[in-house]
């Protein structure tokens, strides 16, 4: 339970907020979005960026700088969480191994199943990332799947070391390559994250210029960060 008895001031506030929201929502006509900017983007996105997925083109071409800021926020959150939990990659392996030995070991079925699922999840993540400009999906979604793929074996075999040094290198290189692709666009076409490599024909795997490369960079960065976060939280029990 949240609390043993209701909090009357909080309930009163919620009631007032509900009245306010009802008053606001009554004037919003559902289904009649004006979408002046959205209409314009829908008209030119496929022609300008070559991506069939308009959301991906907004995320990585029209608003690419914003996505870079988002990656910075995620990086700060992951670094902060690692710092607070006190897991430096110097002593991550030995200490964690010594502490998690008190847990009962995972069963045979879970171990073999995790082994069986690891390549499957890896392929699924790579597919979702690399088809991000054609179908729903992209770097963030595929990165989450990749993080899960690397966390499942850790759950099955708590003693197996997760190579955090490699994860940090992958994360750093992916972030740097995102910035480098952006700067290459600045040098080539005159603005940050300008589409490079030609747009190609809409709907093919090798199209949309640099968007698949950016998706790959985001996927690797997000995947390594989220996997690092989960492994940092998967520590020993506090007593």
């Amino acid at each position: 339970m949240l609390t043993s008895r209701p909090r009357w001031p909080a309930l009163l506030f919620i009631l007032g907020l509900a009245l306010l929201l009802t008053a606001l929502l009554r004037d919003l006509h559902f289904g009649n979005a004006p979408m002046q900017v959205g209409q314009a983007i829908n008209g030119v996105a496929a022609h300008e960026t070559g991506a069939a997925n308009v959301v991906a083109s907004v995320l990585l071409a029209y608003r690419g700088l914003d996505t870079l800021g988002e990656l910075a926020i995620l990086f700060a959150a992951a670094t902060g969480a690692g710092l607070v939990l006190g897991i430096a990659f110097r002593n991550g392996n030995g200490e964690a191994q010594a502490k998690t030995n008190t847990e009962p070991p995972a069963g045979f079925i879970l171990r073999k199943g995790a082994d069986l699922m690891f390549p499957f999840l890896l392929i699924l993540g790579a597919y979702v990332i690399l088809h991000g400009h054609l179908t729903p999906g992209g770097g963030f979604q595929g990165g989450a799947i990749l993080a899960a793929a690397f966390f499942v074996p850790q759950l099955a075999r708590p003693s197996s070391p997760f190579n955090e040094r490699t994860a940090h290198w992958v994360e750093a290189l992916a972030g740097a390559s995102f910035v480098l692709i952006g700067i290459a666009g600045l040098a080539g076409a005159g603005w940050f994250l300008a589409p490079l490599l030609g747009t190609g024909s809409v709907g093919e795997l090798l199209s949309a210029g640099s968007i698949p490369l950016l998706q790959l960079a985001i996927g690797l960065k997000v995947g390594s960060e989220l996997a690092g976060l989960m492994i940092a939280l998967h520590g020993p029990k506090e007593t």
Partner: peptide, 30 residues
């Protein structure tokens, strides 16, 4: 097609949300 701008915005917001959640959980554990 429907408006792509809110969708791109929310895609960003979901990922930032999980970052905030993870940082909060780390602070809570500490």
């Amino acid at each position: 097609m429907v408006d792509p701008l809110p969708q791109a915005l929310i895609l960003t917001a979901i990922v930032i949300g999980v970052g905030v959640l993870a940082l909060g959980l780390a602070l809570a554990v500490r």
